[in-house]
Computed example of a mutant assay.
Amino acid sequence: MSRTASDQSLDGLADGSSVVVVSPERIDPDARVRDFDQLSASAQRLFVSEEETNPATAADLDPGDVVRFTDYYRVR
């Protein structure tokens, strides 16, 4: 996915990314973690989209959710 950034860049992300890579040890124990295949088809499409779309607009994803895909990704 081209819209990712390392978790060290979470604050002040210049490229407007709405999904960022996060290391597992930095995931809040209370965060909702979802496997990619648990998402609806529309949320999966938004998540992997190369366009500047925000996956949080999908009914089953909220800002702060973490998606386990090829890595862990936090939805912003």
Rank of each mutant, 00 (worst) to 15 (best):
S2H: 02
S2K: 10
R3A: 02
T4H: 03
T4D: 06
T4M: 05
S6C: 13
S6G: 15
Q8A: 11
S9M: 11
S9K: 10
S9V: 11
L10F: 12
L10G: 00
L10Y: 09
L10C: 04
L10P: 00
D11Y: 11
D11W: 09
D11S: 11
G12F: 01
A14Y: 09
A14D: 10
A14S: 10
D15M: 13
D15Y: 14
D15C: 11
G16F: 08
G16E: 09
S17D: 11
S17V: 11
S18E: 10
S18L: 07
S18M: 09
S18C: 10
S18H: 10
V19T: 07
V19C: 05
V20W: 05
V21D: 09
V21L: 06
V21Y: 12
V22C: 04
V22M: 10
P24S: 08
P24Y: 05
P24C: 01
P24Q: 06
P24A: 08
E25K: 13
E25V: 09
E25I: 11
E25T: 07
R26A: 11
I27R: 05
D28E: 12
P29F: 05
P29A: 12
D30E: 14
R32W: 03
R32V: 07
R32I: 07
V33Y: 02
V33N: 06
R34D: 02
R34W: 07
R34P: 00
D35F: 04
F36C: 02
F36H: 01
L39A: 07
L39S: 05
L39M: 12
S40R: 01
A41M: 04
A41V: 14
A41N: 08
A41L: 09
S42H: 15
Q44T: 07
R45S: 12
L46R: 12
L46P: 00
L46T: 01
F47M: 10
V48N: 09
V48Q: 15
V48K: 15
V48G: 08
S49M: 04
S49Y: 15
E50G: 13
E50M: 09
E51D: 14
E52L: 14
E52T: 14
E52G: 02
E52P: 01
E52A: 15
N54Y: 05
N54W: 05
P55T: 06
T57I: 06
T57V: 08
A58S: 07
A58L: 05
D60F: 06
D60R: 01
D60V: 06
L61M: 04
D62T: 06
D62Y: 03
D62Q: 13
P63H: 15
P63M: 11
G64M: 02
G64W: 01
V66E: 00
V67L: 00
R68D: 06
R68T: 10
R68S: 08
F69W: 11
F69K: 00
F69E: 01
T70E: 15
T70N: 08
T70W: 14
D71K: 12
D71S: 14
Y72H: 15
Y72V: 01
Y72F: 10
Y72D: 00
Y73N: 03
Y73H: 13
Y73V: 08
Y73E: 05
Y73P: 00
R74D: 01
R74P: 00
V75Y: 03
R76V: 15
R76L: 13
